[in-house]
């Protein structure tokens, strides 16, 4: 069970995410976020000492959210190909139902690295997500389904592809729904990664 303070923190994060997505990261201030939650700015600082700290907490929140979803898939007793499909489905589902999350990841975390320099070195703030992707790859190789290669060459292919599709969707360029591409994308990714 989350404590009251943790529940409140999560509420702030979810609201902040929505505001960032709507108005942009730089245009959104702590007072803006406080006012949508009907909180005083002073009280807000009890939870997050600065916008930068909030920004880092948000990316950790997203990473933990996605990580826990992939972990569940990793723990299922299914083939690597089925896992591949389920991860893609999950990612697109998140992009559709909580677009602000994927949006934050792609447009804010990856584009404003200066904000995350101190405290989010390397992949610390996205650790939970990256670890589950690592385990998905590792188990795929171990079971003889995936080809052994450098982690990043596989990671880039996988996440770059999915991120690209979500980006195209966000720009209203995709003619069809994300879900309509799942089978083809699964086929492409699995073919590229398999032995």
């Amino acid at each position: 069970m989350l404590t009251k303070k943790e529940q409140k923190k999560e509420k702030i994060i979810r609201n902040a995410l929505l505001l960032f997505a709507k108005n942009g990261f730089y245009a959104t201030t702590i007072p803006d976020i406080a006012s949508t939650l009907k909180m005083s700015v002073g009280n807000m600082y009890n939870y997050f000492k600065s916008k930068d700290i909030l920004a880092k907490e948000i990316i950790k929140y997203i990473s933990a959210y996605l990580g826990s979803k992939i972990k569940k898939i990793n723990e299922e007793d299914i083939s690597t190909k089925e896992k591949t499909k389920k991860i893609i489905e999950m990612y697109f589902k998140t992009a559709m139902s909580k677009p602000e999350m994927i949006d934050y990841f792609l447009r804010i975390y990856l584009s404003n690295r200066e904000v995350f320099l101190d405290g989010c070195e390397g992949m610390i703030c996205v650790n939970e997500f990256v670890i589950e992707v690592m385990i998905y790859f590792e188990e795929g190789v171990k079971s003889g389904d995936l080809r052994d290669q450098d982690f990043f060459s596989a990671f880039g292919l996988f996440m770059g592809y999915l991120g690209g599709m979500v980006f195209l969707k966000g720009e209203n360029i995709l003619p069809k729904e994300l879900n309509d591409y799942i089978d083809d994308i699964t086929y492409n990714i699995y073919k590229a990664l398999s032995v």
Partner: peptide, 8 residues
């Protein structure tokens, strides 16, 4: 022995 960079 590593699988996609993770020691076996």
């Amino acid at each position: 022995k590593k699988n996609m960079g993770i020691p076996q």
